[in-house]
Design a protein around this nucleic acid. Structure first.
Length: 453
RNA sequence: GCGCGGAUGCCCGAGUGGCCUAAGGGAGCGGCCUGCAAAGCCGUGAUUCGCGGGUUCAAAUCCCGCUCCGCGCUCCA
């Protein structure tokens, strides 16, 4: 079973399963008011690899990731653009999944939308009121953090320290709040804002209330893993948890957070214009290069994404693709059980995808070496092993040969003939000509291969 | 100020006390292969892990201090 770092306990520990053989995971999804950026992409890739791995290892995985489709940012943007907020959330959700498809992130098993759960949220808030853990003010309903004994568990700071803070920020929310740390469960609507009925007046749920309700409804009390970007650790996850604790519910048993994407090199901003946008990134580079880049670092480490690191990942990918082409005609063979055991051990070690990529490349080299030696049996096993690892990591290797236009093929044939006649001057001239047209010729043992440069 | 996490070769990065004279990828260089290339393979590259102390038979890994960097510290991700 996999061991993962638990943010709450601050240690790597075995992921305990509530129901043997089954894993329940809730990952906080996007607020759909803008296109996804690279940070969203990393988050999605990290948990996609985790999910693929758990499924591969034989567990029944229920993977839930929500869409936050009602939130202040959405309303703000709708006002700014003079459009209906629904238009924005629909469009942004479509863009989100288009981006996810591009980076080969599988759809969650369940995708709850906050707007579908408003009734349940109102119920939860009412329950919190009855328990005296929440109170209403002139602008909404707030949770009293004082009623949560271990508030600050995820932030690893006491309530006092959290409140004291670093600077001169202004406290947001009603002046009637009992404690500066209290946060909104329900926000009363201003004229023109989208709203739902509630005992406290027309309004909308607070962000933190959305995710507790959806996760508990779909996965039940004491679900196995709650995950998301490190930026969600506080206040979002802390506050989700606070509500569950105030209700006396057992919440997530394990908390997982992935590190940030840091933006470096100015070159990249030139190349991409907008470095943040995931669609722009995948327009400019092979989407698989970004996955490889994410996989090569540990999920908790910060990663620096620059043109240089993307180009390097692309080159590594070329090597994998070249291998895929070379090994495509190898006979089917079972993957090495020893290697797969090693792969399992690696991944179980706090999702060590970097080590897994290491194993992948070693298998590629093993297969290439065997191929060079004409040992197809050994090559087939190594290639099969590499194939399994790549698949579990969500890396799709491209073994397709390019469709070569007839005129290009004619030149290549002519060159091949010249070469066979040992007329190297002509052969080289024709190869240069092909190169000028953007085509490479490789003289492999099986004959010349023509492919796009 | 408080809290969390970083600092490893030219670059990205793994490294959870002895198998570390430190993975893997990229770039470079040398070699094999090739008519020449490409692809592939082999070799090469940090005696050293931000700095200074300490613990230990043994530390990149643990402890203390310091310097830089990132992030969080309220309804904003």
């Amino acid at each position: 079973m996999i061991r993962l770092y638990d943010t709450a306990r601050q240690e790597v520990r075995l992921l305990q399963l509530r129901d043997p053989g089954k894993v329940s995971i809730y990952v906080c999804g996007p607020t759909v008011y803008a296109p996804p950026h690279m940070g969203h992409g990393r988050m999605a890739l990290v948990y996609d690899s985790l999910r693929r791995y758990l499924v591969w290892s034989g567990l029944e995985v229920t993977f839930v990731s929500n869409i936050t489709d009602i939130e202040d940012k959405i309303i703000q943007r709708a006002e700014e653009e003079g459009r209906d907020w629904r238009e924005i959330t629909d469009k942004c959700e479509k863009i989100w999944f288009r981006a996810m498809d591009r980076i080969n992130v599988q759809r969650p098993d369940l995708v709850p939308h906050a707007t579908e759960y408003v009734d349940a949220m109102v119920e939860l808030i009412a329950d919190l009121m009855r328990k005296d853990a929440a109170y209403s003010t002139s602008d909404g309903v707030y949770l009293s953090v004082a009623s949560v004994g271990d508030y600050g568990l995820l932030a690893h700071q006491s309530l006092d320290d959290l409140v004291e803070g670093g600077g001169d920020r202004t406290l947001v929310g009603s002046a009637e709040k009992r404690h500066p740390g209290d946060f909104a469960l329900w926000k009363l609507a201003k004229p023109g804002e989208p709203s739902w009925p509630s005992p406290w007046g027309e309004g909308r749920p607070g962000w933190h209330t959305e995710c507790v309700v959806m996760s508990l409804d779909l996965l039940g009390e004491g679900f196995d893993l709650h995950a998301g970007g490190l930026d969600l650790c506080f206040p979002h996850h802390e506050n989700e948890r606070a509500q569950a604790v105030a209700m006396g519910y057992t919440f997530a048993q394990h908390w997982m957070h992935n590190g940030f994407v840091e933006l470096g090199g100015e070159k990249m901003s030139k190349a991409l214009g907008n470095t943040m946008n995931l669609l722009d990134l995948t327009d400019a580079y092979d989407p698989r290069a970004y996955r490889l880049l994410v996989l090569q670092a540990h999920y908790r480490s910060p990663i620096e994404v620059t043109e240089g690191t993307l180009v390097a990942a692309g080159a590594a990918l070329d090597r994998l693709d070249a291998f895929a082409r070379r090994s495509a005609s190898l006979p089917a063979a079972p993957a090495s059980t020893g290697l797969l055991a090693q792969f399992t051990e690696t991944m179980d070690n706090d999702l060590d995808t970097s080590g897994a990529v290491d194993l992948l490349f070693r298998q590629v080299r093993e297969a290439n070496t065997a191929l060079d030696a004409g040992d197809t049996d050994r090559a087939a096993v190594a290639a099969a092993t590499a194939g399994v690892i790549a698949e579990v990591l969500g890396l799709v290797l491209d073994s397709s040969e390019e469709v070569v236009p007839a005129d290009v093929q004619a030149l290549a044939d002519e060159r091949h003939a010249a070469r066979n006649a040992r007329d190297f001057a002509t052969a080289d001239r024709l190869r240069d000509e092909l190169a000028g047209a953007g085509w490479l010729v490789e003289d492999s043992a099986e004959g010349p291969i023509v492919r796009r440069a």
